[in-house]
């Protein structure tokens, strides 16, 4: 076992964690703030990647490309939101429907091809894995930390406004929110749009980082997002209580996730088994609160 090899992999894991941390912040908004399990993200993340890949290879400015990816992502969220609120389809199924539809949409965006390469030497990109071990401002980690920080500040400000508070109330207690005159359906749609915009934005960053977009690139993204949310809460939840603090937890959770993945790979786990491992880890973490609630009555009886 070569420790140097492991340490060499850490910068890459951190930058990947930061990219997926942005995605996980989107998941946090739906899963924790809106209390909706939104599976759209598996499609919308790839949509963001596809949009960025096509625009950048078409010669567009990478900042414009990620902005457009964000906007297209909000449209994906809008579709899920409308499925849910105007057609009465359960949120989880609405997300699955949009996600499936997005597979076709993503192929269309990429001109019928399953993947598009974004050659770093040919096009200008914001981040690339090539620079991951540079000790300069070109290191993708620098820009990713700045972007994450700006995103967290903006979200904190938004969710402190009157409208942001009404979204939080919608997720916390729909009956209460409606009794206070909050349009919970509209709020849910807005929340889904914002979340999927952020997820698509992270897809656009991932495409640049890894140098290609692929229709399969976000398969199981929701599970990785949930893993980041849960790991962040378990490890740092006691330290951070404020809204922005919780978002930092999520980003750190994603970094830990990728560091752990690097370690298990280094220990000799087959890459093909990673998704199964992720699913099991998330299942166990989701089960813990339930198991805790099951143990209590026994203790009282004894």
């Amino acid at each position: 076992m070569d420790l140097v090899k492991l340490f060499n992999a850490f910068p890459g894991a951190v930058s990947q964690g930061l990219v997926w941390g942005i995605m996980a912040i989107g998941v946090y908004l739906t899963y924790r703030i809106l209390d909706v399990s939104d599976l759209t993200v598996d499609g919308s993340m790839a949509t963001g990647g596809a949009v960025a890949a096509m625009m950048i290879t078409g010669g567009a400015d990478p900042w414009l490309a990620v902005l457009c990816a964000f906007l297209v992502g909000t449209l994906a969220g809008l579709v899920t939101g409308l499925f849910h609120t105007t057609m009465g389809i359960p949120a989880i199924l609405s997300g699955i429907l949009t996600q499936l539809a997005l597979y076709s949409v993503n192929l269309r965006i990429m001109g019928g091809k399953a993947n598009t390469a974004v050659n770093v030497s040919k096009y200008s990109v914001l981040v690339t894995s090539r620079n991951v071990r540079l000790l300069s401002a070109d290191n993708p980690i620098v820009l990713l930390i700045v972007i994450t920080a700006v995103l967290i500040v903006l979200l904190h400000l938004f969710f402190s406004t009157e409208y942001g508070c009404s979204l939080r109330a919608t997720g916390a207690n729909q009956n209460m929110a409606r009794a206070q005159g909050i349009n919970t359906k509209f709020g849910t749609v807005v929340g889904l749009m914002l979340a999927n915009g952020i997820v698509a934005f992270s897809g656009a960053m991932l495409t640049q980082y890894q140098g290609f977009a692929d229709v399969q690139m976000a398969r199981g993204a929701i599970v990785i997002g949930l893993a980041a949310v849960i790991i962040g809460e378990v490890v740092f939840g006691k330290i951070f209580h404020s809204f922005w603090g919780r978002l930092i937890c999520v980003s750190l959770g994603a970094i830990i996730y990728y560091l752990v993945m690097q370690i298990v790979l280094w220990l000799g786990l087959n890459t093909n088994d990673l998704k199964m491992l992720t699913a099991l880890v998330v299942a166990v973490f989701l089960a813990v609160p339930y198991w805790k609630s099951q143990i209590k009555p026994k203790k009282r009886g004894a």
Partner: peptide, 20 residues
């Protein structure tokens, strides 16, 4: 925060004013 939500009952909630 709960009080502030109730204080704005039935009013338009703006994304450009603080929730409290």
């Amino acid at each position: 925060e709960n009080m502030a939500l109730a204080h704005r009952r039935g009013q338009k909630r703006s994304p450009f004013r603080w929730g409290i």
